[in-house]
Amino acid sequence: MKTVEAGFELPPLTVTFRREDLVRYAGASGDFNPIHWSDRMAGALGLPGVIAHGMLTMATAVRVVTDWLDDPADLVEYGVRFTKPVVVPDDDKGASVTFSAKADKVADGLAEFDITAIAGDEKVLGRARAVVRVS
């Protein structure tokens, strides 16, 4: 189990989402909502284009924490708010999101991390918090 002090920052992680990644996540998760693969359907709902599954962004954000843990089973709580959609264009560049995390509370064998997720200049997750067991 890891030892940590408040203020400790985890190494950031930058991930690029391309259309192919959204199609793969749709298949694996069973979430076939067309706003994640059809520009036409996304546009009909007033979105600027196809957006990434919030649950894909959430899954990727916690990697900043679980990549660092000895055992991902030490994660006891994880929550996010989906504040801004991640628009994923149909090109080779895709959309890059940079995730980082900082421990802001350590007590009673638990450390709380505040996770930041930034695409372009915007925070795409709010109140993203992970609580892990530490020694």
Binding site: R24, Y25, A28, T66, P72
Partner: peptide, 28 residues
């Protein structure tokens, strides 16, 4: 494993005979 591949997470804990699921697998 399919889910871990789809979220692009290479963590070995999600693979093999003693695999545990990535945290957000719970949503499914």
């Amino acid at each position: 494993r399919e889910f871990a591949d789809a979220i692009g997470d290479p963590n070995p804990a999600y693979r093999g005979a003693d695999a545990v699921a990535p945290p957000t697998f719970a949503f499914m």
